[in-house]
Amino acid sequence: MLPVYREKNTLVHRLHPLTALLLSLTPAILALILENPLYLPLLCIGLLGLIGVSEVWDECRSFLRLGLIMAMFILLINPLVNRQGEHILVYGPHLPFWGNINVTLEALLYGLFAGLRVFVIVAACGFLSTTVSPDDLLDLLARFSLRSSLAMALAVRLYPGMVVEAERIKEVQLARGERLNEGKYWQRFKAHLPLWYSLFQSSLDRAANIAEAMSARGFGRGKRNVYKKKSFQPRDAIVALPMTIVLAGTIAASTAGLGSYSFFPSLALPWNMWSPFFLGLIAWGNLTVILLIWSWKRWHWLRSKI
């Protein structure tokens, strides 16, 4: 029932969830920090490489599609609403209350940049969702907020059952003569109301039973231990190190104002003396990890050592 995550035998799937979180969020954070359009395509390629080498292409496809749609949307909307920029490409009509709809080169390029940014972020989230099991993510949550993570675990466990129950309620009420699929919006809505009552009431009854079962197993006693299965391994350090370096390097350089870039009022030249540094850093980080994952899969010696 968990549609996005599947157990696989790759290095990424064997990582500690914290490392995997670092690995997948680094590209997303970089995409947010770096304002220079030059670096994004590289990030994008690196991420796609990561997805490919981790064997999650199929699972990620829906994320990539969504990212692409969002990117297209931004690419289309940005030039229309954005009236800054000096190089006007198309003179649009004049709208009341709004002004002239002019498409500028700067806005167009910014749209491209922002679209790519969205794509990278969504793809990174897809990578995270498909390589870290939700269960491990919950364990991470449990480290700092135990109660909410327990409630969340309970919700995750109950959800599939409730979806099935909702389907069953629909079937049964259809058979009883409730016309759920006919009529206007309003009629359909009214026909659905009793179903909602049914689902709500049985969920509350269930909550009461679960609370009893939890008490029967000693919940609420006070000091509680959290039983962790996964521990850090050398492979975590090997993956985390390059990611930390890339992240730290980029943050340090950007804080010093080295990577800044401005689209408006007029495009600046993306290439400057710091570009090789950023490009090199990103390429190095990505390549290291991709190579590592690739050889882990093929090289038994490496697998057994880390």
């Binding site: 409630a151 919700a155 109950l158 129950e165 969920s203 939890m214 008490s215 919940f219």
Partner: peptide, 17 residues
């Protein structure tokens, strides 16, 4: 306590389902 956690979990699951 357990009642609160159970209520939270079920209400969230129901809201989503």
């Amino acid at each position: 306590g357990s009642r609160e956690i159970a209520a939270l979990g079920t209400l969230a699951a129901m809201g989503a389902a």
